[in-house]
């Protein structure tokens, strides 16, 4: 896609906004439509767009497959880790009320934030990793 000047310029302008939108969807998920799954897929889509326009090699320079292989299990670990942490604090598994000793609703917000971060990490990195393996197979 080296020759397609319009595609290159437009995608270069678009990708920061896509990532920004993904972050908005992620952190505004408590109050509007959105959450870890949607944000994760949008992040992956932004990077896939970059890889389609500028090539897989340029993309893998920014985020290497090895990094993604760490990120995929890390997301699940964060999620399960929140559960185990609430266990240690004396509550049930994934009982977010335990996370804040003063106000349970703060604990809920914190718990949802952490859990959604785990989901974001796993979903985005899995989608990107799957794309890498599919696209890398062709060369």
């Amino acid at each position: 896609m080296r020759g397609h000047l319009i595609l290159r310029v437009v995608s270069k302008i678009l990708i920061p906004f896509l990532l920004m939108f993904a972050l908005y969807v992620q952190f505004h998920g408590d109050f509007g439509p959105g959450g870890g799954f949607q944000a994760g897929v949008i992040v992956a889509a932004a990077f896939v767009l970059y890889a389609l326009i500028f090539g897989l090699r340029a993309m893998q320079k920014i985020i290497s497959p090895a990094l993604l292989e760490i990120a995929v299990p890390l997301g699940v670990l964060i999620y399960a880790g929140v559960g185990v942490y609430t266990w240690i604090l004396g509550g049930n598994f994934l009982d977010y009320n335990m996370l804040d000793s003063h106000d349970p609703s703060h604990g809920q917000h914190l718990g949802v934030l952490l859990v959604e971060a785990g989901v974001l990490l796993t979903v985005s990195s899995t989608m990107l990793l799957i794309f890498y393996t599919f696209a890398g197979r062709g060369r």
Partner: peptide, 29 residues
């Protein structure tokens, strides 16, 4: 939970187990 978006509160809080299992499914895939 003081979370206005009920879908998020059910997904991440009330049915947190489901979502954990599902994250594991994506990981497995």
């Amino acid at each position: 939970t003081t979370i206005p978006n009920v879908v998020t509160s059910v997904l991440a809080s009330y049915r947190g187990y489901d979502t954990l299992g599902e994250t594991a499914v994506i990981f497995t895939a």
